[in-house]
Each structure stands twice: as C-alpha cells, then as structure tokens.
Design a protein around this nucleic acid. Structure first.
Lengths: 334, 334
DNA sequence: GTGAAAGCGCTAACAG
DNA sequence: CTGTTAGCGCTTTCAC
C-alpha cells in the first residue's frame, strides 16, 4: 500500500501538501494540486484511516445497539441511521443483543472499551445506572425507548397517545371487552402503552379490568402462548390490543390454532407496523412508527452531541399513525 | 483518558513493561507485573485500540456483506459469524445492500478503501471480476452463495440436492404438475435450485416443461405477483416449489387472495427455513439451511485466511434437511 | 528483566 | 503557498 510519503515523493512536494490536497484545504496552488492528484491516481493511493484516526483522536465510528435484529422494526431504524452516518463518513457498528438480557448487560458493560465517537441505543432495558454511566463517557442518544427523568436525549413517539388511538379504533368498532397484551413492564414504553390502553377505556367510560391485561415479553412466542388464556377467559373478550406487532402476530396464530377466527371472534390490533404485519393473515391493523425517520433524527442528534452543538430539542417526539388493515374487521386496501 | 505513559509513570516502570504486561508476554517479574496491574486498575486504563492497530498494521475488523437485512435468513447467518468473531476480539461491520443491485455494486467498488482484515460476502451477484478483484486484495469467504470455477473459498449447501429433495417430497405426495418459482437466474444457487427441480422431475419420469418455471426475483412481492399467472396457467398446476421462503410466502398470499386454498388447491414448498416460514398460514414446508453453522464455518475459514493458515477445505458443503409443516398437506407438529 | 527509542501514517502548528 | 517537524499511543527491537 502506498503511503502519503510515496505520493509526496512522486509528486515532488511535501507530505503536508499532499495532506492539504486530500483535505481539500486552501493554500495550495492549482499546479501543486494537479501534481498531487496525478500521483494519487497513479499510485492508487488510499489514506490509512487508522493513522488518521489516531492523529485526529476521533474514531469516526458509532455503535448502534439493537435488542433483536430478527424483529424487523430494528433493521428499519438502523437503515435510517446508517444512511446519514455513511454520508458523513462514519462507520456504524451494529451490536445485536439477540433478545438476551445477559448479552445486553454485557454489551453496556464493555461499551467503554469500544472507543467510538458515539452510541445510539434502541433499547433501554438495562439498569439505569449502567446506561447513565455510559452516557457520561460517550455521546448517547436513545431511539424508540427512553429513560424516566433522565437527561439522555431521545427520539420516539408518544406511546401513550398512540396506544389510545389504537384502543379507540377498537372502541369505535363497538368493542367493550378489550384485552391488552403488554410488553415487559419494566420498560417505560410498554408501561406507556398500557397507560394509553387504560386511558382510552376510561375516557370511553369503560371499566378498566386488571384481568384483561396479559403480560407478554414482547416476542411472538409469548403472545402465542397467552392466546390460550385469553380464549379461556371468562371476560368475554372480543378485542385485543397487542403492544407490538410480533405479539399481535403471535396471538392471531394462537387464536386460529384454537379454531377461532380473527377478526370475527377476536379483533386484534398491533403496534409498530413492521413488515410482518402486512404479510400474515389477516393483515394486522396497527400503529405505524416512523422507523426510518426515527433513525435519521437519532443520528442527527448524535452528531450534534459529538460535534458539541447544543441540541435543538432534548426529546424529539415523532408522529405516529393508524394503519387500518384486516385484523379488526375493516378490510381496507393496504 | 489515561495512556500507557500514565500507567508507566504511576507504576514506576517503562512503557515497554506496561506493554508487555498488557500483552501477557513473558520476561516480566512478578513484582513488576503486580505494580502495573495495580496502576492499570487505579487509572481505569483502556489501551487505545486505534494506536495499537496502527502499530500492528491490523484493523481487527471484518466486513459482512448481506443482500437484505430484512430477509431473516441473513441475520441468522450473521449471528453465527459474530459469535465467533467477537470471541476473537474482532469487530464485525455489517454492510446491508438493501436488496438493491446498485448499492451492491457500489459496496464492492469501495470495498478496497475500507481497510479491514477480511470480508465475508453472503452474496455473489456482482460481476465476477469485481469480486475476484476484491479477493485479490483481501481475504474473502463467500457463504450461502458461490462463484463458478473460482478459487474463492465458500461454505454452503448442495442446492441441487436440496431442491431435488424438496421436489421429491411433492412427487411423493402424488403431484405431477409441479411449478417452480425461481430466483434470479444469474445467481448460481438459483440456477442450481432450478436444476434440482428439473432433475427430480426427470428421475421420476415426469416431463420438464419450461412453462412451469416462473421467474421471481427472490422477494415476497415478486412471488405474490406471479401467483396470478400460476393460477391462470393452463397447465393444471397442483404444486409449487419456490426457490426461497420469502417467495413461498408471497405465492401463498397471492393464492389465498385469489380465493384458492393452500395446500388443498396448491401445495407449496419453500427453501431456507426462515422464521417467517413457521409463522404464516399455512406454515411452510421447506428445506432447512444450517444458517448459524454456515456463519461459523465462514468466519473460521476467514480467520484461517487472515492468519495465513492453509484451508482444510476450499469448499464446505453443509447438510440441509427437509422440514415438513403444513403447506404441502402433511400437517406435522413443528 | 527492563528501558530507550524508533516508527506505524497521518495532520497541523510553525516557520519561512 | 509550501516544507519541516512534532506527536497521536502503542509495540517491538536493541542495548544494557
């Protein structure tokens, strides 16, 4: 591999001049620039980024932590992040926790060694102190999740409002006995989705019944198993609000496996609007989260942090929307 | 951040000694080692990996190129790769081509600048010369795909045999008019799957009919659209072999949308055994590829290459298996 | 067994 | 406008 010295020698200039040309700096005569560019091309020179990083004391790379790469929600956010980062010449490292809390803990613990310029976390399940500790060392933005009373900037949607919209949709369709399959309630967003559910019921004058809340762990499998309980319930459930699409898919599968129909026997509404929601049958009516946008905003905020600019907003709340498909009984073209 | 100098000063030794302790080298007295370790702990010292890389002329990182992160086949292979790589202290950089040939081309073209120790590609769609050129500069292993008559090492399964197994399953169930939805036939693995299909028919004494082959592009959407043609076909098709599960899911959706039933009107068999295959209805009977294993073997081969060891095998062929679910009419517990 | 010092390739401060 | 040079933090000779 040719180095900057080789280029300098060939172009008969100093390394400083070569460096200036590379960096598109001023104070270089046109003739010098031409000579350098010629030499670069002839030697097929690529600057050594490791050396550049060492010198500049920047890694030009960031880490994105995703809870589970198999839930397509996260890859979509990731793509939003990557698009912006790549454009700025940053590398993006993906840390997948494989939906495993142990791995998650470990990731956060070794994070300080990783030496990156910043971190975006699509999860906030880990102990608060651990995350805060990381945030002290690194620019950190959380996306899709958040920490209560924390200074850590985040971008997300209003989970309470969005859930209310979901449940209102069910109420408008005439349902009164609406169950909720929650995510893990140690995560604020799932607490919020539960709150939104309760608040929608209250506003409609319906009873909030603890027996109608089933605790999922946010996976497909967990909801599949809960379907049995839901069907057995004495509460005459006719509609289900699942806290994410994976779980919505899981209950639907379970309900059908038990010989019941969706939406005829049970209307089901989900949350996230992942790819799967449009594929399974019936296609899932759900709340759309602007995933790509979320990624973009997160990385933009991170760059503000990295480059020492003040954040315009510490908390960015994006718009969600209701996507009506088939699983609630209003068949609409997708 | 503390540097090696700070540690040396605090431990009252030279930086060389600190470096030796870090590297677990010999020729350090126990007392010196203890002093250094104490200082490291006290200063919470983390060696600067950028500096180390520059000095060692290694990046300790590799690139994994995936065609489409949304097809869960790839994340599963990726996890196999990552598990091994992380353990060895390597970082894995994911390049997602977003199922876009332009991006793919671009990725391969800029690859030389990326300065990594090695590359694993889960795709081989790009022009052969481009890939070969990359392989000249970098240790490169291809997984799940391959290049004909190329020296580039790869790990995969026998796509011909596996497809034959798939089609044989259909034949055993009594089908004689079996259609095939192929992937893009500029990719060898999809050519092979077509060959396996044809060979199974021939061996069974069935006619091979070009009109029974429908060209998909390996996405869900493409197969969804082809379903119309398949249904309209005059060939009395009763069974379909889709070259991957995404397309199997797509045809199934299309068939059902047209008011026909799977497996009663059309038996469908897929390929890959991705997560989706077990989720959609009917659950897809398919060929399992050992995805995680594939990733592991690929990264092990890559390390052999990086570290200059001779490869035990240039081409590793893993075992596939038939997974019987519902889409062919033999309902079996998953 | 240990330390001094060279040098990986680059950028930027400084001098001219 | 251009060149010389220090130095980023580390590992590894080479002396002692």
């Amino acid at each position: 591999m040719a180095t900057i010295k080789d280029v300098a020698k060939r172009a008969k200039v100093s390394v400083a001049t070569v460096s200036r040309v590379m960096g598109n700096k001023e104070h270089v005569t046109e003739s010098a620039r031409l000579k350098v560019e010629k030499a670069i091309k002839e030697l097929n020179y690529q600057p050594n980024i490791t050396a550049r990083r060492l010198r500049e004391q920047k890694t030009k790379s960031i880490i994105v932590i995703v809870p589970d790469i198999n839930n397509t929600f996260f890859p979509e956010v990731f793509r939003g992040i990557e698009a912006v980062a790549t454009q700025k010449g940053y590398r993006v490292w993906l840390e997948d926790m494989q939906n495993n809390p142990d791995i998650e803990r470990e990731i956060f613990e070794v994070l300080p060694q990783k030496q990156v310029d910043g971190i975006i976390s699509l999860t906030a399940r880990t102990k608060r102190e651990t995350i805060e500790a990381v945030a002290k060392q690194y620019p950190l933005v959380i996306a899709g999740q958040y920490l209560e009373d924390s200074k850590i900037p985040y971008v997300g949607i209003s989970n309470i409002k969005a859930s209310r919209d979901a449940v209102n949709h069910l109420i408008k369709l005439g349902h009164t006995n609406i169950a909720h399959i929650s995510g893990p309630l140690n995560q604020l967003i799932f607490q919020d989705r539960l709150k939104g559910y309760e608040s929608a019921l209250e506003r409609a004058g319906l009873k909030v019944d603890k027996d109608l809340v089933f605790k999922g762990n946010y996976t497909y499998e967990s909801a599949f198993e809960l379907s049995t309980e839901i069907i057995k319930s004495k509460k005459q459930i006719t509609a289900i609000f699942a806290a994410n699409d994976e779980m919505a898919a899981g209950v639907i599968k379970g309900i059908k496996a038990a010989g019941k129909r969706v939406p005829e026997d049970y209307a089901v509404i989900g949350f996230d609007n992942i790819r799967l929601a449009a594929i399974i049958e019936p296609a899932i009516t759900t709340i759309n989260q602007p995933k790509k946008e979320m990624g973009k905003r997160a990385i933009e905020m991170l760059f503000d942090l990295i480059e020492g600019r003040a954040l315009k907003e510490e908390r960015v709340v994006l718009k969600h929307s209701l996507v009506v498909r088939e699983s609630c009984g209003e068949k609409v073209r997708d």
